[in-house]
């Protein structure tokens, strides 16, 4: 089956440059310092942030800046096929990648000798899992009041023959590549770029450009959510 129909639409009715529906929420839990939930189409991810707090293992302690740790896991029924091991080598690699992205965004020198833990759980996976994880963790960090240089926003893109497509689903990424771009939207700088499967070098530019455009759109949704959250909470809090 074609990824793009002769009418120029994708299987879920989107145009090639259209994002899936995004919704997010801040502050789901009491116990972690920050928590968030994001839904991009059928991809659903939960994130919780603990810290900055005392370093758990002293050998890792860095007296100049904070340690950032990330642990990602998937629930058994998150994909079509049952996940046997919620934490395999691939999720460990992804955890490292997510932690690496936040090394660029968190103002680490503000928290010398401390540790920030990010826990991400994938509830449902339908393409763009890494980017959803990064978006959810960014929101959770904002909710926790951790000092950041900027939002971190991530989006995926792919190419079908010669048409670049934005925000690919699982089905669409099977036939092509999946490029994940994470960026600081207000600085316009890309902090991580990941390409699964092969992509011709000549096509890289337009795919990355499209993903960056998608990032800006996702950023608008995320900042809107943060603002409404603050307004809701602050209205009551102003009562002294």
């Amino acid at each position: 089956m074609d990824v793009i129909s002769p009418e120029g639409l994708r299987q879920d009715g989107r145009t090639p440059t259209c994002l899936r529906d995004i919704s997010c929420r801040l502050g789901l839990y009491d116990r972690p310092n920050g928590s968030a939930y994001i839904e991009i189409g059928n991809t659903k991810v939960l994130a919780a942030v603990y810290g900055p707090r005392e370093v758990r293992s002293l050998s890792k302690q860095n007296l100049d800046e904070c340690v950032i740790q990330c642990e990602m896991s998937r629930i058994a029924a998150c994909q079509g096929e049952r996940v046997r091991r919620p934490r395999d080598q691939r999720t460990r690699a992804l955890s490292l990648q997510i932690a690496g992205v936040f090394h660029a965004a968190i103002r680490k020198t503000k928290y010398p000798g401390s540790q920030i833990d990010i826990y991400v759980q994938v509830l449902q996976a339908d393409g763009g899992v890494t980017s959803a994880c990064i978006n959810a963790s960014a929101l959770a960090l904002i909710h926790a009041g951790v000092e950041l240089m900027d939002y971190v926003v991530s989006c995926t893109a792919s190419i079908n023959k010669t048409t670049p497509i934005l925000d690919v689903t699982q089905q669409e990424s099977v036939t092509g590549c999946e490029v994940t771009v994470s960026m600081l939207p207000n600085k316009g700088s890309v902090v991580s770029l990941d390409c699964a499967h092969t992509l011709h070098l000549d096509q890289l530019d337009e795919v990355v450009d499209l993903a960056m455009e998608g990032c800006q759109q996702i950023y608008k949704v995320m900042s809107q959510e943060v603002e409404t959250y603050l307004q809701d909470k602050n209205a009551v809090m102003s009562h002294q």
Binding site: L230, Q231, A235, S238, H239, Q240
Partner: peptide, 10 residues
């Protein structure tokens, strides 16, 4: 006026 909703905006 502190008690009013939206007394100051973040």
């Amino acid at each position: 006026e502190g008690g009013k909703c939206g007394a100051y905006r973040p």
